[in-house]
Design a protein around this nucleic acid. Structure first.
Lengths: 229, 229
DNA sequence: CGGTTCGTTGAGATCGGTCAACTCAAGTGG
DNA sequence: CCACTTGAGTTGACCGATCTCAACGAACCG
């Protein structure tokens, strides 16, 4: 079932060679500490930040742009684990190897920190260790919500996705989507066609407006909330 | 869609009053430490260990029996987050409130530790803090695999589930399932009927045998592995 | 021997997938 | 300035995996 050619092959001159790994935001002091330890690196759209199965040597924080983590199954199906936006940490997921790969979906600036530095810091500074644990807990919570999303209907999944994106946006009325329909589909476990049709349905029922494919206007937030169960 | 009356309502005289929260196993020394801090409590089948939305004041370790974590949506759909078996830690998930509730699916003995004790211990003992972080990472990894499972076909989901259960069994040939078909269905995002039919399919194609509903014989492990992609 | 709970099986309905055509915007080059 | 190309997104027609509803079977218990 569902053999899809994932359109965007890895390419696009990576601006730098590869470091690695993904999730959440730390409190102020800890964030300061991370900035001290890390190096800010620009990455080109669609280059590979790290690959599935590679050892997890780094921890990352998005400074600008958006990053997706994904996993490609043997038959070509692709699952997107998360989208990370400015302030989000990623690369927390495991102790050893990466379960997912990570690519920027726009040009992005990313703070890259050696995992060993992070762990050493955590060893010295208990508050920092707590922050790290807390960030991991947040990521765990996010993935659990993702599981709940995946058992719902197409409309509910898209509603949930839009609410998730809204929560990360300044504007309460407009959501700017940095990702393609294919990315949304692979995040929600749907096909691109179903995503497109569902956007159209929501537009027809006046819940949203879609002035541009990548720009969504929220016209009835409570309807979205209701769909989200 | 899919309004199901989750058959097993919470009941069955809880042997004790409620403590709370879920995930993985620690290395030997840390486990020893947990035993020192915690209290061993018996819980009756289907009683509530903790409820969704309650503050997460405790950390738990299964000593005997099996525990499921679950979340019930507004319309009655139920998602099972995980099954925890002897040695597994659960209640790690968040810093504040429980996202899921937890119930034993068999009578169970559970080691219950105050979260504050755990955190205090983590503060004093860096090795212990590392173990806690590592356990959380393991749980994160498990949930990510769960996401991947949920985008697959019914057959692939069940194959993945059986492999997961096998990995936690002594015997390589027989898997003893402590959970009902309804629990399996809610874990895999399927209906009980589809789970039942898929078991039958796998039996017909000689991949497994089902001497009893709760006892599965693995007859062709590589076929299962292949289905798991 | 009922009654209850759990699991299996069948028949039909439905949601989302598949395949394919079409639109639209952006870029290219003559 | 205008074909032509290319990639992203939309839409339609059809199909099939899974759900729904319902009946049936098996194990357990008083």
């Amino acid at each position: 079932m569902l053999i899809r050619t994932t359109s965007q092959a890895v390419q696009s001159h990576p601006t730098y060679s590869q470091p690695r790994k993904p999730v959440v935001a730390l409190a102020a002091e800890a964030r300061g500490a991370i900035e001290m330890m890390g190096v800010l690196m620009p990455f080109a759209r669609n280059c590979e930040i790290y690959g599935e199965g590679e050892p997890a040597e780094y921890l990352y924080q998005v400074v600008s742009g958006t990053v997706r983590t994904s996993k490609v199954l043997a038959d070509g199906r692709r699952q997107i684990g998360a989208f990370y936006m400015p302030g989000d940490l990623f690369g927390l997921e495991v102790g050893s190897d990466h379960a997912f790969s990570a690519e920027p979906i726009t040009d992005a600036k990313i703070l890259v920190v050696k995992r060993s530095s992070v762990l050493a810091m955590a060893k010295r500074d208990n508050a920092f260790a707590q922050e790290l644990l807390s960030a991991t807990h947040q990521e765990l919570h996010r993935v659990q919500e993702h599981v709940v999303l995946l058992i719902k209907s197409a409309q509910e999944r898209l509603a949930g996705f839009l609410l998730e994106m809204m929560a990360r946006c300044k504007s309460q009325q407009f959501v700017e989507l940095p990702m393609s329909r294919q990315d949304i589909a692979d995040y929600l476990g749907l096909t691109i066609e179903t995503v497109s049709r569902t956007f159209t349905q929501l537009e027809t029922s006046a819940v949203i407006a879609v002035p541009t494919a990548r720009r969504i206007e929220i016209r009835n937030r409570s309807a979205l909330n209701q769909m989200n169960s």
